[in-house]
Structure formats: C-alpha cells, structure tokens
C-alpha cells in the first residue's frame, strides 16, 4: 500500500478532521463509479489512518519502504536563478534529435 498520508495529501501530523476532509476531497476527485481502483486505494488509505489509534498502529507496524518521490519533490523547489540554455546546448540537442549523434 502506498503511504496513506501521501495518498491523501496530508501531513503525518494531521488530525482526524484534516484527514477526513482530505479523504472527502480525494473521493470527490476520484468517485468510485468513475475511478474504482483509485477510490479503493483512497478508501484503504483513509481506513489506515483515520483515527489517532489507527495512525499509531500504522506507525508502529507498517513496513512499506518510504516513497522517495515526495522527499525528492520537496527538495527540488527552485532556489537559484533561471538559466537559459547556451547556443551550443541547443545545437547539441538538435543534433541529437536529428542525427542521433551526441
């Protein structure tokens, strides 16, 4: 099962209300009649963390290795100045596409 917090888009510190709100929002985005598989995943995620007791249980026993995407995405927020590609880089890109040469 994917990380239920990620799936519902809530922080690990979220409380019951925030989790329920996020769950209902996700269900609106993926209603069961239109997207049954996604809905099932959302439902399972909600069941796994909906109460304080559930969240404690999840933290104690879950064994899924973490999804690094969230971690990576948060680390990839632009921090520096934008850089335009150089002429040489554009030429190289064109050459690669048109001739397969690097």
């Amino acid at each position: 099962m994917p990380n239920p917090f990620d799936l519902l888009g809530v922080a690990e510190t979220a409380d019951d209300d925030a989790i329920k709100k996020a769950y209902l929002q996700r269900v609106r985005e993926h209603p069961p009649e239109r997207d049954p598989d996604r809905f099932q995943a959302i439902r399972a995620a909600y069941e796994a963390i909906k109460t304080h007791r559930d969240r404690l249980r999840y933290r104690l026993f879950h064994q899924e290795t973490p999804n690094l995407a969230e971690l990576a995405v948060s680390a990839l927020r632009p921090t520096g100045a934008r850089r335009r590609p150089s002429e040489a880089q554009v030429r190289q890109l064109l050459n690669q596409r048109l001739t397969g040469l690097k």
């Binding site: 990839l76 632009p78 921090t79 880089q89 690669q96």
Partner: peptide, 26 residues
C-alpha cells in the same frame, strides 16, 4: 515540474532544470 523532469532525456533534464532555476546540487 520535478516529476516532469524525470520523464526527460538526461541532456534535456539538465537544460530544463536550469530553466526552472535548479542549482547544481538539485
């Protein structure tokens, strides 16, 4: 954009990263 960058070829990825303002460590 982070996930979209992953779908690019390496050379494109670097250029797109620059366009977005990612630094060398990123």
């Amino acid at each position: 954009p982070a996930r979209a960058l992953l779908a690019l070829a390496p050379a494109q990825r670097e250029l797109a990263g620059g366009l977005l303002g990612l630094d060398a460590r990123q």
